[in-house]
Design a protein around this nucleic acid. Structure first.
Lengths: 340, 340
DNA sequence: ACATTTTATGAAAGCGTATTCAGATATTCA
DNA sequence: TGAATATCTGAATACGCTTTCATAAAATGT
């Protein structure tokens, strides 16, 4: 390992005090130009690199953000994470990433995080109620919720307008003539699931259709559940002719379930997803879906968090942003059929 | 923000010195059981959480690993990253993730990293030659290369046996009767591209076939390139009947190119990918591919890096691991046809 | 020309922890 | 019983940086 060069070494070499070196590094005023040059020269010659940890210690900030992701291999989350990482870098922050497949993992991570390893946290997959996380927010620890939000009103979040997203999706199906529309999603303790369900129900009602509980499947946010729920839906006595699935990955699984049952998409069962992950646009998939703007969502979340950090102490009122969803019409709803 | 509780506070409450609190926290021997209990009680009552930054400062280790990823939205990398993050957590390490779409970004990150923000780095997408990275390795900074490796022999890496992977893929195509096989990949300054090319060429030769440079396309590791290269390949005078594409994402793009040209997969053009990302197994895709074991690769990389950290000072000889690739036969090579 | 302000710099303190050093008490051994 | 050893704990120091405090020199104002 290279011997680390410290400000002290630089100071000795430049013939000044260590404090002066620090002043040069931090662009303090009141540093003589000549002195500054001497110091810069010494820094260069010694290849000095500041020790971030020591700086963090002195400043009481880490310049690192925590990022909680429930499943990084879901393209929705990896796109979101990428956006967050890139924006954080632009603003001079590092991102420590936590994969929280299970809830207890998130809990242990939270303990970690209170050890002042990060200045703030972005949650991408929080439950509506989570006492540990709520405690964190109430204690004033800077948190921003992205994609999924906490019920707690005092918390800031950047989410898709899920209700609206669901509405435009379901409305599209109804306009195509579907009267019997299934809904597959995760549990209602997630804002995404709850709000999309509300949008689904509201739209069905608005069009004078009956809300049939048999058509509503709320289990888990994973492919296996989507697959089995689809199989169940298509085998009930009066099966749906279309299914709105709460995310693209699950919609892909639903698609397999339909095909495995010997039915066709969209002729027998139409499908709409949510997210618009890249693969949904593939020529062989062509999934109709509600697009989310992961890039924007991630960027805004970082911006908001960094803002919170800079106005430390003076707590502002929380920010609540709902991004506009957009229906992407492809072929799994019978677009081609409708065109004909 | 909650007022942070320090060891000093705990010490005062427990009526002992700060040093003793530290001893209790670190399970030092020579601490009276009664004292230990007093301290533990105070810790609990005050809700003390150690300050990781201060600890890092004292110990001169951050307990954080850097992870360089070229494109987190490529499922191959997100699966790899997930594995790395999870394994690191198991071993008590945090992961700071760096997205390096462009090379200059990686360079600026490297400067960051020398600021002792992390104890070591895992590179997943290094070039064979990269003077900045080589300098880091030569300076003794703990680095492990995962997936792609450096040419530098003194560096440790965990990679797929890319040559072998290419060989089994191409052999499979040849066994199916293909005599004219295209190859699409990224530039040869990446070990993955180079080794797979070697495997391709060697296998073609071994089977007495002619290596036709017209069939070899080496441009960039991205979808646009894969698409256009495919279009080019299928429009040359004597076009290939099969194409080996260097990764699944690119193979998916190649598939679109074939279909857009009005040809069929696999009847007109057979395709093999590399990686076996999840979507490749989807019912509508069914891409034949060479599987990599991202989970294992990531885990081993972390294990190796953490080992390097523990045996600090005493530099061991570098570890070179080639993981066994595995051919996953699906339908894009005419498996169904072959079966008939 | 003297008081005041501005500019410039070093010494020292502080961030929160781990650890060394030294001393005190208790225990063991001959 | 005295010496050697083991057990326990507090004071002090170090980690590398930022920043306050103090002080000195230079510039400015009247």
């Amino acid at each position: 390992m290279p011997v680390p060069v410290t400000t002290k070494d630089v100071a000795r070499k430049a013939g000044v005090s260590q404090a002066t070196v620090s002043r040069v590094l931090n662009n303090h005023h009141y540093v003589n130009e000549e002195t500054r040059q001497k110091v810069l020269k010494a820094i260069k010659e010694l290849g000095y690199q500041p020790n971030i940890i020591a700086r963090s210690m002195a400043l009481q900030k880490t310049h690192a953000l925590g990022l909680m992701v429930s499943d990084l291999t879901n393209p929705f989350y990896s796109e979101l994470a990428k956006s967050i990482i890139n924006r954080a870098k632009e603003l001079g922050y590092n991102v420590i990433i936590y994969n929280t497949d299970t809830e207890d993992v998130q809990a242990t991570y939270l303990d970690f995080l209170q050890q002042r390893r990060v200045d703030g946290i972005i949650f991408t997959s929080v439950e509506l109620k989570d006492s540990k996380v709520e405690k964190l927010v109430k204690a004033g620890f800077p948190c921003v919720f992205c994609n999924r939000r906490l019920k707690l009103k005092t918390s800031s979040f950047i989410c898709s307008d899920n209700k609206k997203g669901a509405k435009i999706a379901v409305k599209h199906l109804i306009n195509l003539g579907h009267k019997h529309i299934g809904y597959i999603s995760g549990p209602n303790n997630y804002s995404t699931a709850l709000e999309r369900l509300e949008g689904y129900i509201e739209t069905v009602r608005e069009h004078g259709l009956h809300v049939d509980n048999q058509l509503i499947k709320q289990g888990y946010f994973n492919n296996d559940y989507a697959y089995s729920a689809t199989r169940e839906l298509i085998s009930i006595p009066n099966p749906p002719t279309a299914i709105f699935v709460s995310n693209d990955l699950m919609a892909l699984a639903a698609m397999e379930a339909v095909l495995d049952a010997g039915l066709r998409v969209p002729e027998d069962i139409a499908l709409v997803g949510y997210d618009d992950i890249k693969i949904s646009g593939h020529k062989l998939i062509q999934l109709t879906t509600v697009a989310q703007h992961m890039e924007t969502m991630g960027r805004l979340a970082v911006d908001e968090l960094v803002q919170m950090l800079s106005r430390d102490g003076g707590r502002q009122k929380p920010v609540h942003k709902f991004l506009e969803p957009e229906l992407i019409i492809r072929e799994t709803c019978g677009y081609r059929l409708a065109k004909k």
